[in-house]
Amino acid sequence: MSAPTADRAPSWYEASARARLAALLDRASFTEFLGPAARETSPHLPLFDLPRAFDDGIVVGRGTLDDRPVLAAAQEGRFMGGAFGEVHAAKLTGLLRAAAELRPAAVLILFDTGGVRLQEANAGETAISEIMRAIVEVRRAGVPVVGLVGGRAGAYGGGGLIAGTCARLVVSEQGRIAVSGPEVIETNHGVEEFDSKDRALVWRTMGGKHRALTGGADAYAADTAEAFRAAALRLIDRAPAFDLETMRAEQARLEARLERHGTAGDAPDIWSALGVPESGRVSALGDDAFAELLASSGDSHDAR
């Protein structure tokens, strides 16, 4: 029994987790597991006088994508920053364990997270590892795990590591993927190291265009459900196996990146080295122009 959704916002970034799933998957195909009526809320947030959400900030279930069966999870970045608490994370772990057994055509993870929920930090941290291990098991079972990053909270902290474990990643310009967030870097090493209020710096260091150009993501999507859907469909059939060959190729890919760009001071230096003409203008390019640019330049995205 899935709860119906309202407000189908055209913007992926603005949409709720439920609205994203409804618009991404085939019409009315989604069935939620352990939905809000089950009231599986966090037992820990009340200790901190914090309100709970009926779904603990994540929606998991099954649906179809172009008539192919998929399992899907969507995080709600507006609740506790989409952070991984014990219940939240366990819903994703369960979905992945089910996928290893049931072998759907794909697992889709719609990221929208600041990382581990610090009120439940030990449970969340452990769960990040459980999720990564479960993703590996799903991939070994031959099922592609595709991550979609374009939400308000991005994919930070443990969410960034989980994203790096997926077989394929789609990112929009607004989607940010990183481990340490801007504020964390600034807090630890000062504003000279990273000015977290400099939005342009955040986007070009962690944002979707940079990740797509450098191989941190495999596909770039405009900020709409249609674009994410089309990209996910393209990627499902091109997901790499999880084996020694893939991992060695990733090792080589990441070594090459360090060798080529390890001394780069800023993102445009890297883009120039990748052969992007007028790299200073990348941030200003519209989605179509950027997609064209990406098709003609950028790093290899094969091994992940």
Partner: peptide, 20 residues
Amino acid sequence: GRDQAILGVVASGNLEVLME
């Protein structure tokens, strides 16, 4: 005809409503 609806989000200045 719906048995259930969930709307909104638990965030500052907001709320979630579950109807059954």
